[in-house]
Design a binder for these strands. Sequence first.
DNA 1: CATTTTAATTTACTAATCAAATTAAATCAC
DNA 2: GTGATTTAATTTGATTAGTAAATTAAAATG
Lengths: 406, 406
Amino acid sequence: MNSNPPIVDVRETGTSLVFSAIRQMSPVPRIDIASATGFSPATVTSITADLINRGLIEEVAASPQLVNAKRGRPRVNLKIRGAAHLVAGMKLSDKLATVTIADFDGKRIADFSNPSDVTIRSAAQVTEFLSETLSLALENAKLKQQNLSGVGIGLPGVIDANTGHIFWSPTLLERDVPLKKMLHGKLGLPVFLDNDANLVAIAEQRFGLGKNARNFIVVSVEQGVGMGIVIDGKLYRGNHGCGAELGHTKVQLDGALCRCGQRGCLEAYIGDYALLREASTSLELPASATSEEQMEQLLAKVKSGDVVAKTIVRRAGRMFAVGLANVVNIFAPELIILSGERMQHNYLFNEEMINEMKKSIVQTGGPPPEVAVHEWGDQMWAMGAAAFAIDGITDGILRDTASYVA
Amino acid sequence: MNSNPPIVDVRETGTSLVFSAIRQMSPVPRIDIASATGFSPATVTSITADLINRGLIEEVAASPQLVNAKRGRPRVNLKIRGAAHLVAGMKLSDKLATVTIADFDGKRIADFSNPSDVTIRSAAQVTEFLSETLSLALENAKLKQQNLSGVGIGLPGVIDANTGHIFWSPTLLERDVPLKKMLHGKLGLPVFLDNDANLVAIAEQRFGLGKNARNFIVVSVEQGVGMGIVIDGKLYRGNHGCGAELGHTKVQLDGALCRCGQRGCLEAYIGDYALLREASTSLELPASATSEEQMEQLLAKVKSGDVVAKTIVRRAGRMFAVGLANVVNIFAPELIILSGERMQHNYLFNEEMINEMKKSIVQTGGPPPEVAVHEWGDQMWAMGAAAFAIDGITDGILRDTASYVA
DNA sequence: CATTTTAATTTACTAATCAAATTAAATCAC
DNA sequence: GTGATTTAATTTGATTAGTAAATTAAAATG
């Protein structure tokens, strides 16, 4: 009964602590690193000297206009050295694979996207398609594969990010695919896989609105409803490494039928297909059009004052508010980021929904969570994947015993 | 824009790491501490020697029958030294204050409970009542206040555990009460306050079914519905230090009216008052009886096959299943502990509900969370409070620079 | 140009931790 | 029994991560 080995968490090294402080606050002078990490200036000097030595960070030439007009020795800013590594971030969605090449500092170097008519593939075909897309992206950016230090990839579905095992994905024909291993074999590069919603959360944390928050959630609506949870500055992935499934929380007992086969799922009220399903019963929408086109027509009707269209969209908004409020009641995050493209804005991410949500959360006495809407393009997903790859590579580098001279 | 100071988390000291390993695995030989913490045996020897020196842990005399019949030098087990400190854990509920005196190792030394007709008090009166109850409990156990090193107290409501500030509690007349400060002033002892549901989670983690889990939730139904969330072995308290409000997650848009004034809250379907409200419309229950008695009568009717009573209880169970499933879909914990007294078992914590819940969670491919029902008496809450106090005291002790000789 | 101020570095030390050798206490094998 | 073997714990002697205090660096001030 007592032989179970509870793994006590690995303590972070001074080097990794300093490095992540630089990443978070970049550009930042040593003195601020010292106060943020609690290390003495002496230690910061010695650790940063080592990091500079290893080519991972660099000093920033002081730009004259930024000098604070204070006296004293001027601060020397440090930043991540972008040239240290290049990574690719990829996002595989319905009919498109998007690639962003980024440097170690997260700077976007090049973008590429590869449309395709095929929406669902075998594991082997996905491997092939992603590999081919990466090659094209590299060619396009005049880079070679050996310039890359790793590839991060996001795709929808239920994925264990630790093992890179895909339990299920709408883009894959099979279940239980060891895609990370397959891609690693094909590309010969370190591969980092995760659910796309988690990667959006990482993107927000690293480059977006989550920069200064420790506990926040990111809700991203695309085909499905995704959610990423950041607790204590760390992405929370649940017990099996799979993310949260906001889209399949129940907002109604015995409610509308969902794609997943269950009833009352949030997604069954706010997903594109749910709205169109309702529209089809009492509105005239051209049946032959794509679902994107149909959605646009539905929203146009809402704008022009169509009562039925408004009813449809309004319920979706109210249901979404309930779903969000539930997350808030359970989590009490400091910030909620609604992340998506313009279209969602019109029917979900609006004042009315946010107010309704706030009315449904329990009064704690503390301030309600801030709600922010972030309209990003498609590249955001890929940037999250790139950030994920950067993190993975950084972990690998900093785990090696850092030999710096005191 | 860049001057915000991101606090990088404090790294745990070797001493506190070893100490918590001992607490978790107690009794445990040094060699196992070494492998669990990753420290070398040499380090464990030196740290444990210091802890023994300080009287915080002790060697356990080898009991002959437990010797593993292996050869080699026998292992010497270590455990927390109970005599090091005594604490009181208190729980204030509707009509009762419960006290448990526990030693530093979490061993129950004495119990006491103090019933009262008053259900709601002013802050001053609560301070007085708790102080008086503690005195009686000490007297009863033949102890003096100076024997105690701290007091942990749990009460329902919205509480910031860090500051000990009570935003609101059903047991208090006023809002925004700095109860921790008041009690500290009155008792002259370190006081640790938290929401009672959180303390149940701590009790489960320390003494109960959560011992071997890193991510789990504890749902406790008393008057309201409480939930405690443990992530990565640590109680998650949300952004303001206040716990999760499972009872006020919405399970129905525009649903039943809740005590909190909102509609569709889980509590408005499964709380005692919700069931009795329904019962009152079509069942004959003696109006003069207490709600406990009425509940018993309602459950008796269920048992004897009353159709209406069954309908009422069955909906409650289904709603509860939905509420739980939502938590699982968001969190994916490895374990759910349903904690409460016998009564809940009959109408909420049963096979049917658990199956219904499992049907409402999304298939991840991984195993569904384990669900365990834990029937504890009233003392559980107080034990959680005691454990919380022990933790607080331990933190204080181990934060001081441990001067051990290498 | 000396003074003041702030940032960064150097120096000399301390504390935490480990590897390797040693000691301790048991069983096993004959 | 007695030495060989095995495993746990400790000791010893280094090494490393980190600090405090002194020093150097580079600016503004007056």
